[in-house]
């Protein structure tokens, strides 16, 4: 089935998932979320792909939340199911066996910010505007952001971002640790491609094991994490054992 809201390209072992709604802002509608889930299942299962880039390049926005015109009339029941759907997408991205780079090409707001945080790390263009405007709209975020943002930038910056609801630029995002690298408009895409291709050249089994272990580090005590690491490393070192 073709995609309506996104496009997938594969080059040099990198799978590019382009959010491509055709509108100025890539809204995370129910259709877009479902297509993203399908896209990540597809790239995860494609052996010719070693790393994934998620981006709205060359558009103006990476992603923004759902359509406010629709959400304004959500019942609690509908909001519950919407959060559940969004969270299942982010779980799909986190559990994708390949590294996923968030290439933040521009406006990244609300659900779009949570989407960026489900990627393994984030590279931003210097025109980035990133915000969590929930408190301005009378809601909290529902796509895992209340847990992920404090873990990425620390509780205090997370509270400032949530409470102010204001957009932050690329340099602030870099200082807080919300994005990992910032490049100028000219440099941005070439650097995303080089980084992704560099990662995709490494053996996939090692990349997958590293991703699983680092994700597990968040939720396990050190000793259990070390046991997991030993098992994974032993397995990798003896590919025919």
């Amino acid at each position: 089935m073709p995609y309506k809201k996104l496009r997938i390209e594969i080059a040099n072992r990198v799978g590019y998932v382009y959010l491509n709604s055709g509108a100025r802002f890539n809204k995370l509608s129910i259709t877009t979320i479902r297509e993203l889930k399908r896209a990540f299942t597809q790239v995860d299962g494609d052996d010719s792909i070693g790393a994934v880039v998620l981006s709205g390049y060359p558009g103006e926005s990476f992603a923004v939340g759902a359509d406010i015109g629709q959400m304004v009339n959500f019942s609690s029941e509908e909001a519950f199911h919407f959060a559940e759907l969004g969270q299942s997408l982010f779980d799909r991205i986190e559990s994708c066996s390949k590294p996923v780079i968030g290439a933040l090409n521009g406006i990244t707001m609300g659900g779009g910010c949570d989407l960026a945080m489900s990627c393994d790390f984030r590279i931003a263009r210097d025109t980035l505007q990133i915000a969590h405007p929930g408190a301005r709209l009378g809601i909290i975020t529902g796509f895992c952001g209340t847990r992920k943002l404090p873990r990425i930038v620390g509780k205090n910056f997370a509270r400032e971002i949530f409470m102010s609801s204001d957009p932050y630029g690329a340099q602030d995002a870099l200082r807080m640790g919300l994005v990992d690298r910032v490049y100028s408009t000219e440099e941005f895409w070439p650097r995303v491609v080089t980084t992704a291709e560099q990662i995709a050249r490494h053996p996939l089994a090692a990349l997958s094991a590293a991703k699983r272990l680092i994700n597990a580090a968040e939720d396990t005590d050190l000793r259990t994490g070390c046991l997991l690491e030993r098992e994974a490393a032993t397995h990798l070192n003896t590919p025919f054992g």
Partner: peptide
């Protein structure tokens, strides 16, 4: 959510998110 595992924290967030939609502030804000 900060001190508990991701899956449980996300459940908590989902329910709190849904709760926002039964409140005045959500209608007014949007």
């Amino acid at each position: 959510g900060y001190d508990i595992d991701l899956a449980t924290a996300c459940l908590l967030e989902r329910d709190a998110f849904a709760l926002c939609f039964s409140r005045f502030d959500q209608r007014e804000g949007m």
